[in-house]
Nucleic acid binder design. Sequence first.
RNA 1: GGGCGAUUAGCUCAGUUGGUUAGAGCAAUUGUUUUACACACAAUAGGCCGGGGGUUCGAAUCCUCCAUCGCCCACCA
Length: 794
Amino acid sequence: MDFEAYKEIKMVNIIKIKISVGMNDKFLKPYEPKETEENIYKLWEKSGLFSPNKTKSDETFSIILPPPNVTGNLHTGHAIMLAIEDIMVRYNRMLSKKTLWVPGTDHAAIATQSKVEKEIYKKEKKNRHDLGREEFLKRVQKFAEESHDTIINQTKKMGASLDWSREAFTLDEKRNFAVKTAFKKMYDAGLIYRGYRIVNWCPKCQSTLSDDEVEHEEQKAKFYTFKYSSDFPIYISTTRPETKLGDTAVAVNPNDERYKKYIGKEFEIKKFADGPDLKIKIIADENIDPEFGTGAVGITPAHSHIDYEIAQKNNLPIIKVIDEHAKTTNEAGTEYAGLKIKEAREKVVEYLKKNGLLEKEEEIKNNLSICYRCNSSIEPLPSQQWFVDVNKKFKLKNSKLKGLKTGQEVSLKEIMKNAVESKQIEIIPDRFEKVYYHWVDNLRDWCISRQIWYGHQIPAWRRTQIGADNKTQIHPVKSSEAGAEQFNRASADKKENIYVGTNPPKDIENWLQDQDTLDTWFSSGLWTFSTLGWPEETPDLKTFHPISVLETGYDILFFWVARMILMSGFLLEDIPFKKVYLHGLVRDEKGRKMSKSLDNAVDPIDAINKYGADALRMAMIVGVGPGNDLVINDEKIKAYKHFANKIWNATRFVLSNTQDFDSHLEAEPPSEISDFDKKCLDELDELKKDVKKDMDNFKFYLAGEKLYHYFWHKFADIIIEESKNNIKSSNPKEKLSTQYMLITILKTCLKLLHPFIPFITEEIWQNIKNKNDKEFLMIENWPANQENKKTRKQ
RNA sequence: GGGCGAUUAGCUCAGUUGGUUAGAGCAAUUGUUUUACACACAAUAGGCCGGGGGUUCGAAUCCUCCAUCGCCCACCA
């Protein structure tokens, strides 16, 4: 017989069932997620049960949603995050804890700004300067609002049980106040300083980047070996000849016999490469590898992090030969000023060749530093910026940090390391603890100022006028204007000329606020407590901080997780969270990370529309351990849609066979339970125990799989099949026993499955609950083990 | 250069502290009408668990070496 003919016969049967038991029509058709999910979510929202306000319990469980960027849509990475967190939240809520999950979104400064800039340029061929700061920011805000709305709707579609009454935005008024407060406190403690230091500069974004925002890409490069002049004694090598216009030293290993005799000597090179006069000092440095290249390194303090450090140690001058537009400066000599890097490089190489100074030209592989946003190549250059000092010590005033006492002097770096080492914070999976230590150990001061417009403007003002005549300008109007560097470097940044505060200075006309904004991670770093009302001492802050778990992708362990530990460590002298649960990245079929720039992002909303949110959630959880990447697969999602339907049909079976079962009997088992039914119930107890253990150990992937397997291959395939004879038994006791067993297992499974697949379980619950049950499955008690229910045995 | 992970059925992946005949989904083959479910059921086939060596009564699991792939960090100038 073919399917179609078979289906017709089925329809007749279904009508027969309907007539015989008078069951809700709903269960006579296959499960349709589309028809239920939206309604169920509305019911939940209306109930107010996402909020912990009414829960009376001393035990709390709190999570803060890692705020999605308001740059567009939710992607699968967000979906997996929402699935895992909702499982934790629903599980703990069913354990009757005071459970809070705070929603929010991130303004994502540079990402959002560049997205909007691109859009505006595409449509109107205008850049942000054409529009002006005020008009441009209006446009960004509009875009951010639209993005926000889309994201919130999509989040709801996933079934996330977030307390919407507490929603936050990293750039809203409250969070802005938190940011300003944090900045001021850190500034006053000397942890935030302004300095002329080498930074990562993106010439395309026209902004600094933190070390973590720089990525590396392997490329082929030409490696030139040359000497500055014919009478210079040492050959050096470089891939960037144009930066050599700013060299101030040559470093060699102190034990290198070839060069020992030159150490300490100074050489003057007149008009190097037809450009500037160079003064090259020969210095010794342990870190120079005599085996590599010529064993001598030309030191360019202004355009290399390492050279800068060497220059600091040796008091070498810093000559900036490349500017913010990736062009050579006046300091590179009049012949070079204003040239593009490539032109300057060619010119230098040509000179070296002409004058017989070039010894070798080889092709090598090296790593190019690129901007994680726009992929343009990064220029290390010196600039006046704001930094967080990670090594400066400060005194703890009221320490809640394990192992660090009040009164003790610590640095941010020490706090960060201690938090994990002391086990006050546990990272799951633990292999990331090693990665974290390595990062902390190598951490340099964090550059926090960005030359973009969208974000928290730095709450620092600089005096513009001074003196009796009020005419002497001591600061230029904008930090980015020509000449700013000289002013700033000169000494104008003396403490008395800078004001930092949460409110503007009183004599505002003599002050100008810093035009720069803060790194987006500065505000994200405050997220666990800024969302709870800090700096106010709110009840929420007291009740829910530190939060129980911080759940996020391992790719932002440094960007975000570490920064939160830093911020909370200083501002609250406490940890921000007790546990960190890191999930993996969702990859496409080719194993690539999903990203907007690659345009390979799968829309989770499509999957929800096709298979339902429950199916998508299940597919993202089962079999994917913490920290492991996941390849998204349509077939897998489909399989869990079938699972949902299985639950639906099993329910139909149970319902049609328990219509005459008195719901009062659910609470206490019937006096006589058959051996088979008892065995089934005992197995159910085992399952409960197993699942509880997995849930408590954050092994959701195992719990989910066990539940799936039990429901389908134990309950449906074996128990229901076996029960078919007994349920029709003429012995009423036997029938009652079976009915009790079936309904108990079904209801227990619904509870156990609820955190994983909340929609279908709640939908069924709404149709089968009786007077003794709670109104929502969402707040039912998690099935406890039956140890004290031994009376069931006959 | 340093670190981490992966390698299990045709594909995508589980396999918890070592413990019977190694599991799931999809795909494949055969069958099924059976009053919950064809989004199903029953059955079949498919695996030297990357390779070598070791520990053990017992290894996919622990140790060691090697290979391949992937990721993160550092930057040799």
